[in-house]
Design a protein around this nucleic acid. Structure first.
Length: 889
RNA sequence: GGGCAGUUAGCUCAGUUGGUAGAGCAUCGCCUUCACACGGCGGGGGUCGUAGGUUCAAGUCCUGUACUGCCCACCA
């Protein structure tokens, strides 16, 4: 046990000790052979290059809440941590570092460069792991994984070969998205479309051997040298007669056919389209369909090729300006207008993406996508459900997945070409001879795989697949995938596809897609906007628990989180409140633990009431977390601890603590129980402060001591569910509040002890109030308390009515008599308003005959009660007014 | 062009199966009451975007509509 707690919670002193303890103790390293239902979550692997941002913090907090809660519920929990090699992103970072030394990766050569990246990872890759650690994540560090680990690389190769052998991976020429800065192909979803202001130029194409002409509209005149056709709609009467003739490409003078295809939108532009099969995906499709020539005029660096004639060597941007100039000079520029249109950008470096024809590797997605689709929602639920449609839609319209990347950092494609016979060899093990001709001149494919290829195997590759491991047997499929919706396609859908192929089973039973964390204005956080909230800074400033509680409390399903620093600061108060409630408890419990007794037999309304409330929170929190309602779980704890325990129970229990014997011991043990169990409930959300308090709490006789991270969820105590007593307590609270209100509104100092006369409505109230006389005296701060239904109230007194019980505070000696009249009028007006509303219901025939009987009954009861209150209050007002008048005389 | 969210107190958001609107922060008043001023007590503040519909009863269900945000999409 630790010494007394300090008066303010200081997270920095506490947290590091627990991080260390959890790690050294291997607290979160489960044994697959141990009992308990397997419950696994794999971390969405952050990039090794990365630093923890607030989105990670949210993601990791929610996962940790689930894992810690599942442990409490007796599950055998495995949370696998790890990082992603993040091909393009990491290569970019290292290349930038090289550039600062004045070197390029090409100067270094492939092998040395890769060596350099590994070095870089050794040096900086632990940063993100440290940050995961500082968040308090209960991950199993002994099972740390990296997508380029030997085991995972083996899995990658196995899947590649298997897909290839099944005919689901092929190599082919296709128009892909090319980033000329990253110098690699990108998958469709790695391209971000953004509306940009551009121009739509109308350019005249002359018709061969004719005076006629055709005007086409284009946003990309630099591709004109690559034109191999002009296309119109087959039913367009304006152009029908030109179909089959030849158009002359401006400047270059090449003749190209005029073709017809219903793809063309007659309404847009001029209704005539120039076709550049090598530099536009639609034109590529047209080119294939109409068997057109394919002329590439822009190279992989964005420079005009020789085929572009006089524009050879220009950048594509320069070419655009020049060619427009030239066409204008020739008099063939017919028009120029501004146009907003979508332009694709590289999701890694934001360079404009160029459609580019090249040889790439693809995964056939049709069959895989169907299986992934069919698994939802029966085998895998997607939450919130609104994302289900999006998921379906993507899979329904999916195109083959381009998986080759022209970079060096990543899993190199396990394909070799025989230099002698040209045979393509795809194999798990590096081949030494060509199986076809026996040659040893085998050349491995230069490309590496898309990062998402290896990530898509993550749920099972991290558990040791393709080996048959105890982890796979116990923990697969994983319980839930928790991630942001921004990677639903990149990652979630692809894991679903790959798992079906490799495991013939879904990778997870639930997918919980959480929100994006935005700034207070709802903007995305970004370094350039300067609105980022750095979780590490927040942890240092306010403590990890405050950050975690804030994120949890804001994690309502299906809604973005608008975060600002003052919210975190606000919840730090809550952490401190818990700390001080614990301090108070321990001061009153003392060194020696109280003697346990049967809580179901507790006496004292306040004890019975708080135990009842405790049962409710336990139920609520458990239910909320089962349904991923994180915010509800956090709110329940917050309300109970602050609103019930601190605001009331701690005050109510003070008199008991001054006594000796049974009442004191009872209060102590109840307090001990309440504190102990709320610590367990809060622990998944705020692991540090709860563990620290738990550690300082004495252990009662007959109770086992274990550390909080290993504590079970508190079992329900049915004998403590006491709704009747809870309602009685509610009545007492209302009485006390009424007295406080009178004091506050009549400017009677809260500290000033007043006399109170209660005129209960019935014997039951008399009994209840008598039984709790002491409690009322203390909490309402009274000098004297008279409970007497027949008592004669002094005329000059302030009054209120609660459930028919009249509350009278004599005002003799106080100043503000006139204030009371105004106060009563306000109360009466409020009552009257309510009464009218209720009576309107009761006067309605339809309501009486059609509403549920309970509802009608409730309304009737309410009406009677309100009327009674009104009458009593009116009478008191009259008496008081009289007193005022007499006083004036 | 298609799809999905959101619109509730000054701000940020809750509001499970329809039954007289809640929290935190902010604001106002009072209080250094021996756990906590990162505190206590009390007050003020909302015709729940808008128009209809269903219902005895709608913030809650349905339809239309406005605005905001996001995602998807091959109109050059």
């Amino acid at each position: 046990m630790r010494d007394t707690l300090s008066s303010g919670y200081e997270p920095n002193h506490v947290e590091e000790r627990w991080r260390k303890h959890w790690e050294e103790d291997a607290s979160f390293t489960p044994d697959p052979a141990s009992p308990g239902e397997g419950y696994a979550i794999v971390i969405p692997p952050p990039n090794v290059t990365g630093a923890l941002h607030i989105g990670h913090a949210l993601n990791l907090t929610l996962i940790d809440v689930l894992c810690r809660h599942a442990r409490q519920k007796g599950k055998n929990v495995l949370w696998i941590p790890g990082t992603d090699h993040a091909g393009i992103a990491t290569q970019n970072v290292v290349e930038r570092a090289l550039a600062r030394e004045g070197k390029t990766r090409h100067e270094l050569g492939r092998e040395a460069f890769i060596e350099r990246v590994w070095q870089w990872r050794e040096e900086y890759g632990h940063r993100i792991l440290d940050q995961i650690r500082s968040l308090g994540c209960s991950v199993d560090w002994t099972r740390l994984r990296f997508t380029m680990d030997e085991g995972l690389s083996k899995a990658v190769r196995k899947v590649f070969v298997s897909l290839y052998n099944d005919g689901l991976i092929y190599k082919g020429d296709y128009i892909i998205n090319w980033c000329s800065r990253c110098h690699t192909a990108l998958a469709d979803d790695e391209v971000e479309h953004e509306d940009e202001a551009g121009h739509l130029w109308r350019i005249r194409y002359h018709i061969d051997q004719s005076d006629e002409e055709l005007v086409v509209a284009t946003t990309r005149p630099e591709t004109i040298p690559g034109d191999t056709a002009v296309c119109v709609h087959p039913e367009d009467t304006r152009y029908q007669h030109l179909i089959g003739k030849q158009a002359i490409v401006p400047i270059l003078g090449r003749k190209v056919p005029i073709i017809a295809d219903s793809y063309v939108d007659r309404e847009f532009g001029t209704g005539a389209l120039k076709v550049t099969p090598c530099h536009d995906p639609n034109d590529w499709m047209l080119g294939k369909r109409h068997d057109l020539a394919f002329i590439q005029v822009i190279d992989e660096n964005g420079i005009m090729k020789e085929e572009s004639g006089s524009y050879h060597g220009l950048t594509k941007e320069a070419c655009r300006n020049k060619i427009i100039e030239d066409i204008a000079a020739q008099g063939d520029l017919v028009g120029e207008e501004k146009l907003q249109h979508a332009v694709g950008h590289c999701y890694r470096c934001h360079t404009v993406v160029e459609p580019h024809v090249s040889t790439q590797w693809f995964v056939k997605t049709t069959a895989l996508a169907k299986e992934a689709r069919d698994a939802v929602p029966d085998k895998t639920r997607i939450l919130p459900e609104s994302w289900r449609k999006t998921y379906y839609h993507w899979l329904d319209t999916i195109r083959d997945w381009c998986i080759s990347r022209q970079i060096w950092w990543g899993h190199r494609i396990p394909a070799w070409t025989c230099a002698d016979c040209g045979k393509l060899v795809v194999a798990e093990q590096d081949p030494t001879v060509c199986p076809s001709c026996g040659s040893t001149h085998l050349q491995q494919d230069e490309d590496v795989l898309d990062t998402w290829f290896s990530s898509s195997l993550w749920p099972f590759s991290t558990m040791g697949w393709p080996e048959k491991t105890p982890e796979l047997a116990k923990y697969y499929p994983t319980a839930v995938l928790v991630t942001g919706f921004d990677i639903i396609f990149f990652w979630v859908a692809r894991m679903m596809m790959m798992a079906q192929h490799c495991m013939h089973e879904v990778p997870f039973k639930d997918v919980y897609l959480h929100a994006l964390v935005r700034d207070a204005q709802g903007r995305k956080m970004s370094k350039s906007t300067g609105n980022v909230i750095d979780p590490i800074v927040m942890i240092e400033k306010y403590g990890c628990d405050a950050l975690r509680f804030t994120l949890t409390a804001f994690a309502a399903m299906g809604r973005d989180i608008r975060l600002s620093e003052d919210r975190i600061e606000g919840y730090r108060h809550f952490v401190n409140k818990l700390w001080n409630a614990a301090r108070f408890s321990m001061m009153n419990i003392g060194e020696t633990a109280p003697k346990p007794f049967d809580l179901g037999a507790a006496t004292g309304l306040h004890n019975i009431w708080i135990l009842h409330a405790l049962e409710e929170v336990k139920k609520d929190v458990d239910q909320a977390l089962e349904e991923y309602r994180f915010n509800d779980a956090a709110q329940s704890c917050y309300k109970f601890l602050w609103g019930s325990v601190c605001d009331w129970y701690l005050e109510l229990v003070k008199p008991d603590m001054q006594k000796e014997g049974a009442p004191k011991n009872q209060a102590q043990f109840v307090l001990w129980t309440v504190l102990r169990e709320i610590l367990v409930l809060l622990h998944p959300i705020m692991p540090f402060v709860t563990a620290e308090i738990w550690d300082a709490l004495p252990v009662c006789e007959g109770f086992e001591h274990y550390e909080l991270a290993k504590a079970p969820y508190p079992p329900s105590r049915p004998s403590c569910v006491r709704p009747k007593e809870a309602a009685q307590m509610d009545f007492l609270q209302q009485v006390i509040v009424a007295v406080r209100t009178i004091k506050a509104e009549l400017s009677i100092s809260p500290g000033k002890k007043v006399r109170l006369l209660l005129q209960p409505a019935d014997d039951e109230q008399v009994q209840l109030l008598e039984d709790n006389r002491e409690l009322i005296l203390t909490v309402a701060r009274l000098e004297a308390l008279e409970i007497d239904p027949g008592a004669k109230a002094p005329k000059a007194s302030a009054s209120a009515v609660v459930l028919g019980c009249q509350i009278v505070v004599p005002l003799k000696g106080t100043v503000d008599l006139a204030g009371e009249l105004a106060r009563l009028d306000k109360q009466l007006a409020k009552l009257e308003k309510n009464l009218i509303a209720v009576n309107k219901h009761l006067a309605d025939e339809n309501f009486l005959s059609r509403a549920q009987p309970e509802v009608v009954e409730r309304e009737q009861r309410l009406s009677t009660e309100l009327l009674d209150n009104k009458e009593k209050l009116t009478a008191m007002r009259a008496r008081f007014a009289q007193a005022l008048a007499e006083d004036a005389e």
